[in-house]
Design a protein around this nucleic acid. Structure first.
Ligand SMILES: [Zn+2]
Ligand SMILES: [Zn+2]
Ligand SMILES: [Zn+2]
Ligand SMILES: [Zn+2]
Lengths: 138, 138
DNA sequence: CTTGAACCTCTAGCCACTAGAGACATTACA
DNA sequence: TGTAATGTCTCTAGTGGCTAGAGGTTCAAG
């Protein structure tokens, strides 16, 4: 049994974040000492590692809730888990596409001015003022 | 002179968002009718278009504030504008890198399970529980 | 037994909006 | 001119995923 600070160190999740996960229902309500402090065991550590890993991969709290729910019912179909993962992947791909478009425009805009002129003639400012200077939609 | 709704239509920025920009100091305080409703002119339209475009490119409200400030002083050096743009570009590139790593892991995880089994044997859930199954850091 | 670190709860703040309540203004049409 | 529909006003609160701080209590080492 270890404290919340110890759990925090082992998982690299900050103490207030662990408490937040408890409030959100991701972490179960921890056992308490007689003085009301949280104590965790291996199960708590594994649960938090799962959450941390999923968060690192960009899953939302809500998605993680569903995944944990599934995990706690080993006999249920895992269809939902796969769906959550593929939709997460799709979301990431959409974001990448969007960012690549932005990257191209921003790169063009940045290159257009060396920062040695005056605001009036600045290509950065002109570009922002006029989307027609952009190469594509974004 | 046109209403906030009209401005909204022309810029595709929602009405409450326009008011929000005013509170944030991005939009100047609009003129008012005798009945206290906002009225805008060409200058307001151009300002909002600038903001919209910059937001579409991912600039923060704070960054846009600085850019507008520069724009209003045509004689100042545009160095700051270039810096803001390049740091925005850098931020986008960092995000893309991160997302590409995530994409690879998520793609592997997704492929690992067709969703026809049972939660206990689910590769998606197993992967989330154990970062050692991942190919790289993320 | 004392000190100091760690812990507790609660509230508020971050960003860039978005939604809703309840009241007032404007516009179109009869 | 009357009226009804739509638009607008301000204000407050909510979103997601935390993070920071206040003010108090508990624990562990020496
Ligand atoms: Zn410039
Ligand atoms: Zn553009
Ligand atoms: Zn599965
Ligand atoms: Zn991993």
């Amino acid at each position: 049994m270890f404290s919340i600070g110890e759990l925090s160190k082992r998982t690299n999740v900050k103490v207030p974040t662990i408490r937040y996960y408890e409030v959100m229902g991701l972490m179960p309500e921890a056992e308490r000492t007689s003085g009301n402090q949280r104590r965790y065991d291996k199960a708590g550590l594994e649960r938090l590692s799962f959450i941390r890993h999923a968060r690192d991969l960009g899953f939302s709290i809500e998605a993680i809730s569903s995944l944990i729910e599934l995990q706690e019912h080993p006999d249920r179909s895992c269809e939902a888990a796969t769906k959550i993962a593929t939709s997460q992947l799709e979301g990431v791909r959409t974001k990448i596409k969007r960012l690549r478009t932005l990257e191209k425009e921003l790169s063009r805009i940045s290159k257009g001015c060396d920062g040695e002129g005056v605001s009036e003639d600045c290509y950065v400012l002109a570009s922002l003022a006029d989307h027609n200077l952009c190469d594509r939609e974004h």
